[in-house]
């Protein structure tokens, strides 16, 4: 016999189910209960940097939009600083959550473009936003990252993107700039399946 390791086990995940909106975004689901909804404003009114909008859809293995998904985003400010890790602008939370339109599955978030953040090594990572999504049928929340198409040089040197062996799959993480809007479609399964991370 050996001594027993006394670590606890992480609570196992369960799907957020079809009604996640009443719990985490009740106002957006047409249900007025809280004085203030959390996660509606990622950057706040005083954030420095370029204001951007990101639009997209999450789709399933059949290519159909997932209309009941809930997405959370986490990002640094334009100077590459995460809240809690240094001084950021008052009101800059760096975190937000969004649900799509129930009819079309289209979602959009407004924020500022994040700056570069130091990676594990000496270099900087390319600007990116961390995404985490849950829905009915997703047993454990899925983590991915959004990178920006107009940061090609930085993307080419990004240590995380370079971990992806199949170079064409790196493109699944790059939001395409079209005018003032970035397009970021997430495919859970099948053709052009998005790269998801075990973080």
């Amino acid at each position: 016999m050996v001594q027993k390791l006394d670590y606890r086990k992480e609570t196992p995940s369960q799907t957020a189910g079809p009604y996640v909106h009443i719990g985490l975004a009740p106002g957006d689901a047409g249900f007025d209960i809280y004085r203030q909804e959390l996660g509606r404003d990622i950057a706040g009114p005083r954030a420095q940097g370029e204001r951007i909008e990101i639009q997209g859809q999450v789709s399933d293995g059949a290519g159909a939009p997932i209309k009941d998904v809930l997405i959370e985003a986490w990002q640094a400010n334009a100077a590459g600083i995460y809240p809690g890790c240094g001084d950021v602008e008052p009101g800059f939370r760096g975190w937000g959550r969004v649900i799509p339109d129930f009819e079309t599955g289209e979602w959009s978030i407004s924020t500022v473009k994040p700056g570069r953040v130091k990676g594990r090594g000496p270099g900087l990572m390319a600007p990116h936003i961390s995404f985490w999504m849950v829905a009915r049928g997703i047993n454990v929340g899925l983590n991915t990252r959004l990178y920006f198409s107009d940061e090609a040089e930085a993307n080419k040197a990004d240590p995380i993107l370079n971990l992806i062996e199949q170079a064409d799959r790196r493109d699944t993480l790059v939001a395409r700039r079209d005018g003032d809007v970035y397009r970021f479609d997430i495919r859970l399964q099948g053709d052009k399946e998005t790269v998801f991370f075990d973080v």
Binding site: T15, D60, G61, A62, I66, W74, A76, Y82, P83, G84, C85, R93, G94, W95, V117, K118, G119, R120, M125, H128, S130, A135, R136, G137, I138, N139, L142, N143, R145, I160, L163, I164, R169, L188, Q189, G190, E193, T194, V195, F196, F197, D198, V199
Partner: peptide, 24 residues
Amino acid sequence: TSVSRSPKNALLSLESTLSELSGP
């Protein structure tokens, strides 16, 4: 519902960076 909403590719394991270790 998980059948068409589950990624077929393996998750890519990351050594955490500040992006994963910080939080709201």
